[in-house]
Design a binder for these strands. Sequence first.
DNA 1: ATGGTCGGCAACCGA
Length: 255
Amino acid sequence: MKVASFNVNSIRSRLEVVLGWLAQHQPDVLCVQETKVQDVDFPGEAFEGSGYEYVFKGQKSYNGVATFSKSEITKVEFGFADEPKDEARLIKCEIKGIVIVNTYVPQGYMPESEKFEYKLKWFKRLGQYFKKNFKPSDPVLWVGDFNIAPEARDVYDPDGLLGHVCFHPEVHKALKKVMEWGFADVFRMHCKEAEQYSFWDYRMNAFRRNLGWRLDHIMATKPLAKKSVACTIDKEPRYVEKPSDHTPIIAEFDW
DNA sequence: ATGGTCGGCAACCGA
């Protein structure tokens, strides 16, 4: 079972990239973020005949998530149970007996802003969500764009970037709290190297200079993590005609 | 030098 995550920065402008990537890599599941399209305009017809079914929730201009799967998608829920539900940032479903939570975590803007407070609260709510609905012994995957680089080796300039909303002590604490419930970082189980980035700012020629961040993650509860056999970040979609600022992460499980 | 680019959408906001 192969599971991938990809922040596409508009599914409509990235259609050919996504379709090509699915055809080439044949993941069982692909979770995408930042679809940037309201549901009535979701380009579902483009995926007919691709071999994937899909669920999605979006809004105009911003956010939006979608989950694609080769096999049946069941028990679909959007957003949190309480307000604000943030439906365009969270899709939960079950595929082949695995719970898959696809998230687009709020970016947070600036450390002093209300948006940053909202980001911290979002992690807290997500922690409660896992605690309330599942057990650490269940096969649960938490994947997506977390807008967090967890460690110094996950950013191009750990000293200079410390305090950025995606590399901030409070955010690190918030992530750690959710992880402690029972998640393992599948990518770090298989790769200990630095400079394994999944995001480069469109500005600053960041990709050419490799000024990157590891913001996209695949976290698994321990029983599932034990069955992971590989996890890689695929930089090939950075070389296509219309690259996203993110690139996909893909994990394989003996499941 | 201390900016820069995208995407959506229709002026700027968000990343």
